[in-house]
Design a protein around this nucleic acid. Structure first.
Lengths: 111, 111
DNA sequence: CTGTATCCGATTCGATACTG
DNA sequence: CAGTATCGAATCGGATACAG
């Protein structure tokens, strides 16, 4: 999946962050991994019913490539995998939590 | 422009935030409006040279619809407009600044 | 200067089928 | 269970032209 290049000539730091978390489902995935620490593929599917298996897979792969999350594969049948934040990925926690906070405020207004 | 509906059944607050700021250039626009308070259309264009006039216009319109920014039109020739955050839009500042912080950290690592 | 309208190629993403 | 491969419809977004 080709990712958009922002490349603001003045170098806006926000764009670097976007580069990493702007995928359609990435911040939601990160949110759940913050709340639950560890998630299996199927658990993430349940938490994000509107995200197709294909999309979930693509987004997880990109996050893994960017060293934000890591995957642990158990060589059992049926297969079992676990996803969790890397220590680098954990540096994103304040960003996601700030998004959560704003979302909660927003939801409380619109209800 | 049709926007994606996230609608996680469990109600993840992060999705509400995404609904508002996930447009291709929105958080970058917000970033500049935080730094500069007020920007004209052409100023934003200069700050975001990779964003076409069309896209800039679309993103600004959506942000205005969502009451995040407000536009002031001066009835002069040639036309002059100014964009700034609304007081509601300013509640997003912590989110954007947290993104900026992470982006700065990320850039300092990768240089 | 500050936009909008239209065209059209490029990209996205769900559906489906398939694999270990 | 945990994915990947492929196809095609829908959407996106740049280029261009036009407008107040």
């Amino acid at each position: 999946m080709q990712r958009h290049i922002f490349n603001c000539s003045k170098g806006c730091p926000v764009e670097s962050t976007l580069q990493i978390i702007s995928g359609k489902w990435k911040s939601v995935i990160l949110y759940h991994l913050i709340k639950d620490e560890v998630c299996r593929f199927s658990e993430l599917q349940k938490k994000m019913p509107h995200c197709s298996r294909r999309m979930l897979s693509l987004q997880l792969n990109e996050l893994e490539t960017d060293k934000i999350i890591e995957k642990k594969i158990y060589p059992v049948i049926p297969p079992k995998t676990e996803y969790r934040l890397t220590s680098f990925g954990k540096t994103l926690i304040p960003v996601i939590l700030e998004m959560e906070k704003w979302g909660q405020m927003y939801n409380s207004i619109n209800s």
